[in-house]
Amino acid sequence: MTAVTQARVLSHLDALESEAVHIFREVAGEFERPVILFSGGKDSIVMLHLALKAFAPAPVPFSLLHVDTGHNFPEVLAHRDRLVTAHGLRLHVASVQDFIDRGELRERPDGTRNPLQTVPLNDAIEKHGFDAVFGGGRRDEEKARAKERIFSLRDEFGGWNPRRQRPELWDLYNGRHAPGEHVRVFPISNWTELDVWQYIAREHIELPTIYYAHEREVFARNGMWLAPGEWGGPKEDERVEKRRVRYRTVGDMSCTGAVDSDAVTVESVISEITVSRRTERGATRADDKLSETAMEDRKREGYF
């Protein structure tokens, strides 16, 4: 009898994981000094988990970089530091506050510091000579990110020009770049928010507690629940109240909104996302609402 070899069919999550692992290994082979952008948020945590898998049992051959706005959620920073220590990683921190103190950046009238991250990010890339920068951006988050390639070529100022991006046929990635330029790399670009949470459930990945429902003081502004803070909230006419909320995404406290929720487990979060009709950034990020082209404008200036 002839033995028939049956091809193994990858599940949806296995296929996404395999693609991301391939991207990490491809960058390790093509570039001299890559770095992983790491904030302690869910996407960067999943990205680190994938990098650990890609090179196990060897250590991850990249350091981490966090652009710290100074308005971060304490729970997220604590989780970031625990992971760095647990895996023996090196963390570089580029501080927005340092640039403000030196007079190289100025506070915005609205107190939002997310748009101020571009200068510290590009300064850190130049200072440390990073030639590839991993980011946790996904195409489902926002229309500007839907245009992004896996390998996104950036000029010497970190700027993004859509006309200079290269085709990526058959999962072939071109990392060629001129001196001074670098490449932003997005291993989970093809994932959705639901994919991320299903993978978190499958891999038993621990997240900061603010991703699950909890009691928190918040106030309403522009249709979102924002956390009080030294950044300038609330104003005189904004009332602080305690609500049961969770965060779908985390960033600068001044522009990251919470959503009403009773989801306290991974499974209940997945159920909540399944019926949601708004993207996580569309529902919770005020900085994306500054204009119709806010994200694309910032990318052209060097934002990730």
Rank of each mutant, 00 (worst) to 15 (best):
W160E: 00
W160D: 02
W160V: 05
N161V: 05
P162C: 02
P162V: 06
R164F: 00
Q165I: 04
Q165F: 04
R166V: 05
W170A: 12
D171L: 01
L172N: 10
L172T: 14
N174M: 05
G175P: 12
H177L: 05
H177Q: 08
P179S: 03
E181L: 01
H182L: 09
V183Q: 06
R184Q: 06
V185S: 00
S189P: 06
N190H: 14
N190A: 15
N190W: 13
W191N: 00
T192Y: 03
T192V: 03
E193I: 00
E193Q: 10
E193T: 05
E193V: 00
L194H: 07
V196N: 00
V196F: 03
W197P: 03
W197G: 05
Q198E: 15
Q198V: 10
Q198S: 12
Q198H: 06
I200E: 09
I200C: 00
E203H: 04
E203D: 03
H204Y: 11
H204C: 12
I205K: 08
I205S: 11
P208Y: 13
P208V: 14
A213E: 14
A213R: 06
A213C: 13
H214S: 02
E215Q: 15
E215F: 08
E215Y: 03
E215W: 10
V218S: 07
V218E: 00
F219E: 06
F219G: 01
A220Y: 10
A220R: 08
A220D: 15
G223P: 13
G223W: 01
G223A: 02
G223R: 07
M224F: 09
M224P: 02
M224V: 08
W225E: 06
L226H: 00
L226A: 11
L226M: 04
L226R: 09
A227T: 15
P228T: 05
P228W: 11
G229M: 07
E230A: 15
E230Q: 11
E230K: 07
W231P: 08
G232P: 11
G233W: 10
E236C: 01
E238H: 12
E238P: 13
R239V: 15
R239P: 14
V240K: 07
V240P: 12
E241A: 10
E241G: 01
E241I: 07
K242T: 14
R243H: 12
R243V: 15
R244V: 11
R246C: 02
R246Q: 03
R246A: 07
R248P: 10
R248A: 01
V250I: 04
G251Y: 01
G251M: 02
D252A: 10
M253F: 09
M253G: 09
S254E: 11
S254T: 08
S254G: 15
T256G: 08
T256Y: 09
G257W: 01
G257P: 04
A258D: 12
V259A: 04
D262W: 03
V264W: 05
T265I: 06
V266W: 01
V266C: 02
E267F: 03
V269C: 02
S271E: 14
S271L: 01
I273H: 08
T274V: 07
S276Y: 11
S276R: 14
R278Q: 12
R278C: 07
R278M: 10
T279Q: 03
R281Q: 15
G282K: 07
